[in-house]
């Protein structure tokens, strides 16, 4: 609240004073009482500099959403009136998508917990990626099986796993299966389809 001095307050009072408007015949219940803020009020969607089509990240109904953004930050997420599925409507979860994108609980740094440690430490993104790549390679090399004892070719590893996919894009699922199964031979690849 910007602190306003007595001069500013009184000038504002006289600008907003309704009695003269009442005397001029304007209705005390409506026009005479309307303040300057109400006159110049506009919906914040009009200040958006980018409006993108999106799909609600929650359930499989597939409601279409419009994300309004300003200076690279989301300012509103609403139902997309063009969609034959939801025609602008949303459920309570979908309607709260803006607060998910801007939730105070969102992480923005990589957190790392060393073995046996009792706290998180922040780490650079690249450091984490390099370390994970080496761990994946180590585990794969230690547990990879080319043939079963009876000679059957299997070319897989039971030591490596990937879990998750139902909340991800098709493109993400494709790369996960391609890398982990096609590339690394991991057998344990699963997602929430079975939850």
């Amino acid at each position: 609240m910007r602190r306003r001095g007595p001069v500013a307050r009184s000038r504002n009072f006289f600008r907003e004073w309704s009695i003269p408007r009442q005397l001029a015949g304007r209705d005390a219940m409506a026009e005479a009482a309307r303040s300057r803020m109400s006159e110049t009020l506009r919906p914040r969607l009009e200040r958006a500099d980018k409006v993108g089509s999106s799909i609600c990240p929650y359930c499989a109904v597939g409601c279409a959403q419009l994300i309004y953004a300003r200076n690279g930050r989301p300012i509103a997420v609403e139902g997309d009136p063009r969609s034959p599925i939801n025609q602008g409507t949303l459920c309570p979860k979908g309607a709260a998508t803006l607060d998910w994108m801007t939730s105070p609980r969102r992480l923005s740094r990589v957190l790392y917990r060393a073995p046996h440690s009792d706290r998180w430490e922040e780490r650079p993104l690249d450091w984490a990626m390099d370390r994970i790549a080496r761990l994946v390679k180590r585990t794969r090399d230690e547990t990879f099986v080319e043939r079963l004892p009876d000679g059957t070719v299997v070319n897989h590893t039971l030591g490596l796993g990937a879990l998750g996919g139902a909340t991800l894009d098709n493109e993400e699922n494709y790369l996960i299966k391609k890398l982990f199964s096609g590339g690394l031979g991991a057998a344990w690849i699963e997602n929430q389809a079975r939850v």
């Binding site: 307050r9 009072f13 907003e16 004073w17 309704s18 009695i19 009442q22 005479a32």
Partner: peptide, 12 residues
């Protein structure tokens, strides 16, 4: 309270 004077803004 700092807007007490608004009591005299309008006569209803």
């Amino acid at each position: 309270p700092n807007r007490w004077y608004n009591m005299l803004r309008i006569f209803r």
